[in-house]
Amino acid sequence: MSTSSAINSLSTGVANSVQYDNDNHTKVTLGGVGATTPVTLTNVANGTSQYDAVNFGQLSSLSSSTSAGINSLSTGLSSLSTSTSTAVNSLSTGVSSLSTSTSTAINSLSTGVDSLSTGVSSLSTSTSTAINSLSTGVSSLSTGISSLSTGISSLSTGVNSLSTSTSSAISSLSTGVSSLSTGS
């Protein structure tokens, strides 16, 4: 092969090679410096260290795993939301039931206190009435005893008067019988 053919071959090889964009070797643009048409890079091995390229297979696997994880998280959140809603409803029902029970107990206690108050008032009225009746009875008894005493005193006076009258009558009768006997 001639030198000219070798140069042409080398020139074609260089034109089809991937090269760094600068002398510092910090960047590579596929298609050459300033290229605007995208190119496909094929047969890329799986990246294994943090500075390796990622191929489509690795990216698809990551996408599937991420999607499954998000779906699982969404299901978990939905389940948590349902559980939380159920717990809140149950708590609300419990608080409402407790409130109703407490209200019923307070109303029942209030009714009991009212009944007790009515009973005490009724007992007080009955006791007052009984005391007044007893006082009236004692007063009537006292008046009766006083009347009986007056009656006994009047009877005693009558007996004394009768005794005096009877004694005077007997004395007069005795004087009369004596007069008759003596003829005076």
Rank of each mutant, 00 (worst) to 15 (best):
S103W: 00
G47S: 12
G47I: 14
Y20A: 00
T182E: 02
S135C: 00
S96W: 05
S103G: 03
A35L: 13
N71Q: 13
G94V: 06
S117T: 08
S147E: 09
S60M: 14
A68K: 07
L180H: 03
S149Q: 07
S124T: 11
S96H: 04
G176D: 11
N46F: 13
M1W: 04
S5L: 06
L10G: 10
V39W: 14
I7W: 02
D114Y: 14
L155R: 07
L91I: 01
L59S: 10
T143V: 05
S172H: 06
T82C: 02
S78Q: 15
S49F: 08
P38D: 15
T136V: 07
S81Y: 07
L173A: 06
T136M: 01
G47A: 13
G137C: 10
S156T: 08
A35E: 07
T166C: 02
T93V: 04
S168Y: 07
S64H: 11
S126C: 00
S154Q: 12
T82K: 12
S121Y: 07
P38I: 07
V14D: 02
S108L: 00
N16C: 00
S2T: 14
V54S: 13
G158I: 06
A35T: 13
S79Y: 05
S184M: 08
T175W: 02
S156F: 08
N132K: 14
S122A: 11
Y51R: 11
T143S: 13
I7E: 08
S174C: 03
V177P: 04
N107Q: 13
V159K: 12
T42Y: 10
G158E: 03
L91P: 01
T86C: 06
L116G: 04
S172M: 05
L80A: 12
S156Y: 08
L116E: 01
T75D: 12
S147Q: 12
T82E: 13
T166H: 13
S17N: 12
S115E: 09
S165V: 01
V44A: 04
N160F: 00
T84H: 00
G144D: 11
T166R: 09
V177S: 03
T100A: 15
V54C: 11
I7C: 09
A53L: 15
G137M: 05
T136R: 11
S2G: 09
S122T: 03
L148C: 01
L73T: 05
T37V: 02
N160Q: 11
Q19T: 05
I145E: 03
T104E: 11
N8L: 04
S99W: 01
S101M: 08
V54T: 14
D21F: 10
S78L: 10
S146P: 09
